[in-house]
Amino acid sequence: MPIELKHVSYTYDPGLPTAKDALKDVSLTFREKEFVGIIGHTGSGKSTLIQMLNGLIQPTEGEILLNGESYYSFPEGMKKRQLKKAQAARLKSIRQQVGLVFQYPEHQLFEMTVAKDIAFGPANLGLPEEEIAARVDECMAMVGLKPELKEKSPFELSGGQKRRVAIAGVLAMKPAFLVLDEPTAGLDPRGRDGILGRIRRLQEETQIAVILVSHSMEDVARYTDRIIAVDDGRIRFDGKPREVFEHAQELRQMGLGIPQMTELGFRLKEKGLPLHDTILSVEEMLQALKEVYSC
């Protein structure tokens, strides 16, 4: 059940002096069970891209398909009313299958209790109450929230806990794709590792596909299987972390960078140390150095 983008373009405020091309002729496929990282500097078009996956923004040009089914085109000859209904139904099903967690998702909390807030998504899907209650418990466990927090007000929680509640609220819709826009922004290192570690484990256990937007090269190098680098509305690189981070020069030009250990690896190589592979993490560096000095 892949998401496919075919020659997708998007322009904000077309025809105004503020008009801006956010995406230019992007073709991409997000496969099932993948852990993908999207990197790009601010304003590169990555936010537009992920909002499109969820059907919140309709491409100005091009087509986007989920499971081979287009988001916006329907068989011809449908009446206007029917079309509107079919469109609404399709978007609902897309939003169930592609869960999107916005930046600072805790800002969207509104209910009286944590449980009710997590139930908002599944309730909108029209699920029976027992099913909703089961999902609330399940998702709270998934993101590592203690069951006793259930009846607390979400506004009493700490920043990291609030964010977990918001993520659980999206997980409760049981999506096949989980799209996260900088889920660790503004968290301390422990909160960051906690959330990303949870997501990685979740992805391995439930086989959900995760699309992670991040500014931290370390995080994408550590957690993802595939990296997509976006620059100026275009896809510049798409491949395994090791392949993408070989292009250190280009990435720097795009206002990005490479993980610190990769940088160190390149520098050591320049100095003549026989490191064969691109290094992504501290553990890999340690391993490589041990090999070099054979100890």
Partner: peptide
Amino acid sequence: KIMKAQSARGADFE
């Protein structure tokens, strides 16, 4: 932004 976030959770405003 909030409307989008709630729409993503299946809220229907229309």
